[in-house]
Write a protein that binds this DNA or RNA. Structure first.
Lengths: 128, 128
DNA sequence: CGTTGTTTTCTACGCAACGTAGAACATCAA
DNA sequence: TTGATGTTCTACGTTGCGTAGAAAACAACG
């Protein structure tokens, strides 16, 4: 239960955009943002969706544990449970986890990262 | 187009099992193996599937580019295009690739590998 | 308190992927 | 030719996702 659809991903992108600010978004905020983003690079722009559509998606994302909703306030407020980076890293672990020979996978994996990323990794791994 | 269903994965596991041996499998081989594996640990065991079911799955896997089939020989022979490790590593790159801040993701990723794996990574990354 | 605009829930349709397999066609061995 | 075996075609049921209407819950105003 890890993969997201196109619209689900677009909604998560909205939430992730403001994840730092710990600013939980209302539905109306999000719709405004998404309409404003018209003409942006990302994939899902073009038509405006019905309010209920976004709500349905948010509910599904909540059920998947990716979104948290404050039910206390009256216009409910939504926010991503974890940052995009954390989520992606978690996904990578999920993929890796299902492998019997993790180290062999890692070997091939680092075999095709860019040199600059390899450099970053060296720094992060530090000295033995 | 990256994710596999449960049965698709089970079939790939069969093919991956003998990927080293460059031994392309016939359908009958695979059915025998899968029946033999009854009582094994993996998830999908329990009932025997119809021959056509496995064939359909193989066709779908072929369309996805994960399986190659020799059409020349009469009982066709099937084999995984790449090893399980390569495939998993590729998947990890796919997940990573969609991130705007790859290095931040990598940072979090290596933050939660086991020490032994970190050691392996250090060796593989080698000297600057 | 009732009318009205906003927000949330419930329900549902269409489509695609996947598990599943029957029916029919092709091929090989006797 | 006749079985036995292998392959293709087609299809049905389920589930996830994009999409949204209808209706219920609620807030604010007069």
């Amino acid at each position: 239960m890890a993969s997201l659809g196109e619209l689900e991903r677009a909604v998560m992108d909205l939430l992730w955009a403001g994840h730092e600010a710990a600013t939980a978004n209302t539905l109306r905020d999000m719709l405004a943002q998404s309409t404003a983003a018209q003409g942006g690079a990302a994939g899902h722009e073009g038509k405006d969706l019905a309010v209920t559509t976004v709500l349905t998606v948010l509910s599904r994302l909540e059920k998947k544990g990716l979104v948290e909703r404050e039910r206390g306030t009256r216009p409910h407020r939504y926010q991503a449970v974890s940052s995009r980076e954390d989520h992606t890293a978690e996904l990578m672990h999920e993929v890796l986890g299902s492998a019997p020979d993790r180290e062999a996978v890692l070997a091939r994996f680092i075999g095709s990262v860019t040199e600059s990323e390899a450099e970053t990794l060296r720094k992060l791994l530090g000295h033995s």
